[in-house]
Design a protein around this nucleic acid. Sequence first.
DNA 1: GCCATTTAGTTGAACGCTCAACAAAATCGC
DNA 2: GCGATTTTGTTGAGCGTTCAACTAAATGGC
Lengths: 154, 154
Amino acid sequence: MIAVMTRWLDPDEQRTWRAFLTASRALMETLDRELQRDAGIPHAYYEILVRLSEAPGRQLRMSDLAEASGSSRSRLSHAVSRLESAGWVRREDCPTDRRGQVARLTDAGHATLAAAAPGHVEGVRRHLFDPLSPAQVDQLRRISEALVDHLRET
Amino acid sequence: MIAVMTRWLDPDEQRTWRAFLTASRALMETLDRELQRDAGIPHAYYEILVRLSEAPGRQLRMSDLAEASGSSRSRLSHAVSRLESAGWVRREDCPTDRRGQVARLTDAGHATLAAAAPGHVEGVRRHLFDPLSPAQVDQLRRISEALVDHLRET
DNA sequence: GCCATTTAGTTGAACGCTCAACAAAATCGC
DNA sequence: GCGATTTTGTTGAGCGTTCAACTAAATGGC
């Protein structure tokens, strides 16, 4: 039997953790709601369209798209099904791997994205960048990258 | 007709925004999965139990609990229903406002929380605090509080 | 006091996500 | 080459969240 004493968060850590929790949740919910209201799509779907629009030929293998959009395979599969029936994405067989599928952004999908993007960027600016000083923006980038690096190797 | 040119994100802002997005999403998903695996409850429910455990008499009005846990009324109502049928929370009539309901943490709920807390705190430490320097933790607190302040007044 | 408005909380439907199970094709080991 | 393993992607069930609609009680105006 091994007993390990829990190292609880001290008041400062507590405050930091809760502030981070509140801020990131509120930010995501706000941006998600704005996108839903103005463009009729959830943020996760918006991001899929963005990644496809940036890919060469506006197309990506499902697994690469999952990786790029930070999504599980299952989630992506469901999401692309929905985007496909909205007419914004088409699925095609991958020529080099017969297991594979390629998701391609349609013109309609690109148009939807183009219509949604300005409002969304505006929202990101207003809710994330405007309240922070340039130094804080820089700090936030370093902090986020440190967290990502750490989470990836776990 | 007023045409406003979109101020797109410059490469640095782009990088910051995406890193933040990736980091906060990955962190939340990781902590949520760990809590689900080790304690069988989602993070949102864990937080409700925490807030109740900290309240005087381990009880709170539904609307105060919603406020404290950063939840919509509807979400809280559904959540408390589930927590109630798990035996972790009880609903009682509010003595001073006949519209009101008070959620009270049961002993079973407190025990569940006590069992889940050490592992969760450990996770927060490992995934959030360990990868950051003390200075970065301080920066993150300031940044988060600035964002929260800004989002609250919108 | 009485009607209009606001506040508290709940409900059900629609939707998106998670998880585990699965099929099919590619790759690895020998 | 051939069987075991890994990788790719999908599926369906269960769960949690959102949104709009709703009831009931408190508050405010006159």
